[in-house]
């Protein structure tokens, strides 16, 4: 029963894995390169992700809903936006790791627009990433992009917030709460 469930959940992964094995058999060069890249990416994921999820778990258990609502909820104003921005910027790891964290923020009562600012910051203004970007692409490129992106984060968060009805926002919060 349990194994059947596992296979069902991982069926797409297994399918791609078998395609990869076939590629390796019939186009050894492409197949080997593909496995090499995937392996490197898996190692990167496994090294970056554990602390994010441990912090996520601790956040979920220790931070009270009232506290989160006060600092990032409906009446939080500019403070809430700034906290969201710095939380996202201080992050490490790929964007897909930000979504579970966003789920916890929503569950605990953070405003949707603030969570969107958090996602925006996580995607484009991560501090360790900026240093690396500057060393590869130059300081001018990096600072200019950063400046434009900070405006972009705000515009995207605001627009998304405006385009959603109240009931649609509530549904997203329910989604977050139901996951528990």
């Amino acid at each position: 029963m349990k194994i059947a469930g596992l296979i069902k959940r991982y069926k797409l992964f297994l399918l791609i894995f078998f395609i990869n094995v076939f590629t390796l058999l019939f186009f050894p060069k492409v197949g080997a390169q593909s496995i090499k890249i995937s392996w490197k990416n898996i190692l990167e994921m496994l090294s970056v992700i554990p602390p994010i999820f441990v912090l996520l778990g601790l956040l979920d258990v220790w931070i009270k809903r009232e506290t989160m609502m006060k600092y990032m909820g409906d009446g939080s104003g500019l403070i809430g936006v700034l906290i969201a921005f710095f939380l996202g910027s201080a992050a490490a790891g790929p964007l897909y790791a930000a979504f579970p964290v966003a789920g916890i923020l929503l569950k605990k009562g953070s405003k949707l627009s603030n969570v969107l600012v958090f996602i925006g910051a996580w995607s484009t203004t991560k501090i360790p990433l900026l240093l690396f970007e500057a060393s590869s692409l130059g300081t001018t490129f990096t600072l200019l992009r950063l400046f434009i992106n900070v405006i972009g984060i705000a515009v995207i968060a605001l627009l998304t917030d405006v385009l959603l009805s109240k009931s649609e926002k509530e549904e997203i919060v329910h989604l977050a709460i139901a996951r528990d």
Binding site: Y10, L12, F13, I16, N20, S38, W39, N41, L56, F99
Partner: peptide, 22 residues
């Protein structure tokens, strides 16, 4: 909870990584 959240997105992440590799 940390493990649960990680495991819930793991199938997708692994598929994506393989796809990108190819």
């Amino acid at each position: 909870k940390a493990w649960k959240s990680f495991e819930s997105i793991l199938p997708q992440i692994l598929s994506i990584i393989l796809l990108i590799g190819m």
